[in-house]
């Protein structure tokens, strides 16, 4: 945890710079159909089908924090029921992409913005940029609704992390 926290603190200036850029891009980019652009200034962003796990504006600022906290639960505890996992992001955002991926070509969902903001992401050096196309199930230990499902008493950590993500403090060190 503390190692992650240190890494997160080191990354913060970059993240803030990115947030500023994305906010500028977001102001221009209104929701105008399947593909919308902010004229000649901003990136062209592919619109995904369905609803995002968070409001678009919030995601523009905080998606990296969400992924950071989610990955820790996913990798180190095996909690795989979170809707805001990278796998689920890919599943939705690659759905309408011409090449069926979120990373690779210039117009892909992740690439278009990160190229515009000059932020290099390394997620897809390891992660698949294409969806697998199956509904995640849960380990029987968690029950049918998973550890965060109805009746489960595991909302504490997730809520704390989500709150800290929205307040700008990464939740990883907040428990101390």
């Amino acid at each position: 945890m503390s190692v992650l926290g240190r890494i997160a603190r080191c990354l913060r200036p970059r993240v803030l710079g990115f947030v500023a850029l994305m906010a500028a891009a977001g102001v221009c980019g209104a929701n105008q159909g399947a593909v919308y652009s902010s004229g000649n200034l901003g990136p062209t962003i592919l619109k995904a089908p369905g609803h995002c796990v968070r409001p678009t504006e919030w995601m523009r600022h905080n998606h990296m924090k969400l992924l950071l906290e989610e990955r820790t639960e996913w990798v180190r505890q095996g909690i795989r029921d979170r809707k805001d996992s990278l796998e689920n992001c890919v599943k939705c955002h690659a759905a309408d992409a011409p090449n069926g991926a979120v990373f690779g070509a210039k117009q892909d969902f992740c690439v278009s913005c990160h190229n515009y903001a000059a932020v290099k992401i390394t997620c897809f050096e390891c992660h698949s940029a294409k969806p697998k196309g199956k509904v995640p199930a849960f380990h029987p230990l968690y029950g049918p609704m998973g550890p965060h499902g109805e009746g489960a008493n595991a909302h504490g950590l997730a809520l704390m992390m989500r709150e800290s993500a929205s307040t700008g403090r990464l939740g990883l060190g907040a428990s101390k």
């Binding site: 095996g78 795989r80 796998e87 890919v90 050096e125 390891c126 992660h127 698949s128 294409k130 969806p131 697998k132 995640p136 199930a137 849960f138 380990h139 029987p140």
Partner: peptide, 28 residues
């Protein structure tokens, strides 16, 4: 590495080994 299994992210520059297919275990 290209064309990874979406459930098993793996890439250049990391150590790796059998993990008992933990992505499968987590799904029962």
């Amino acid at each position: 590495v290209t064309d990874q299994n979406p459930d098993v992210p793996r890439g250049q520059g990391c150590a790796e080994s059998c993990d008992f297919c933990k992505h499968r275990i987590d799904e029962g």
